[in-house]
């Protein structure tokens, strides 16, 4: 199995990105869109497979972007990947934006933009932090150092390696930012004996 067939996809930003590694060749497709990824993703992936003359059952593994990024977008891809993995009986490999950047440069701190002037920061082995953009160290590596195509190709490449990991966890979103939720205001009355 030296030439695995791997489909990678990512919807953690305003796009549907896909890469197909088949017979040692990489093909990519990036469709930019602010919304509608849930409707667009699966038909787009079918077109990517069809363009290579293969179908879902020819896949050896799927790679999926787990963020950090848009929460809803991450869940769209992660849920689809889990369904595909279960349906096809193949591994689904969750790959973070830091994994992708780390493939390009193992030395620098890594930063991925977050909403409201913040950024997700990974230094060394982590953990990943949410920091103000102004507090980022100098010389961080950010996603725009790579093309969209290179980023999704990296997801496919990493999936091709990690799919053999016997302890491979199911893909899970990498949120970093906790869910926005305020504790209940009404704590209830004092109970008298």
């Amino acid at each position: 199995m030296s030439d695995p067939t791997i489909l990678a996809f990512d919807t953690s930003g305003p796009y549907c990105a896909a890469a197909l590694l088949h017979r040692g060749q990489m093909s990519t497709r990036i469709d930019d869109m602010a919304r509608g990824q849930a409707e667009h993703l699966m038909p787009m992936l079918e077109e990517v497979l069809a363009a290579a003359g293969i179908g879902w059952r020819d896949l050896d593994a799927v790679g999926v972007g787990i963020g950090p990024g848009n929460f809803t977008g991450i869940r769209i891809s992660v849920s689809a990947a889990r369904g595909l993995a279960l349906g096809l009986g193949i591994p689904a490999v969750g790959i973070s934006g830091f994994d992708v950047l780390g493939l390009a440069d193992t030395c620098r701190a890594l930063a991925i933009p977050a909403p409201r002037g913040q950024a997700y920061l990974m230094q060394g082995d982590g953990p990943a932090l949410l920091v103000a953009e102004t507090a980022l160290p100098a010389d961080v590596l950010t996603p725009d150092a790579l093309t969209s195509e290179a980023r999704i190709e990296a997801v496919a490449q990493i999936a091709a390696t990690r799919r053999h990991d016997p302890a491979l966890p199911r893909p899970a979103p990498l949120y970093i930012r906790p869910a926005n939720a305020a504790p209940a205001r009404d704590t209830g009355p004092i109970l008298l004996p």
Binding site: A38, L41, M42, L45, W56, T72, R75, S79, G83, G87
Partner: peptide
């Protein structure tokens, strides 16, 4: 919508695969 999306996307993955 977040929950509905997860169910719908998982179902699409299953349907496509099978």
């Amino acid at each position: 919508i977040g929950g509905v999306l997860s169910g719908v996307m998982c179902a699409k993955g299953l349907a496509a695969a099978t």
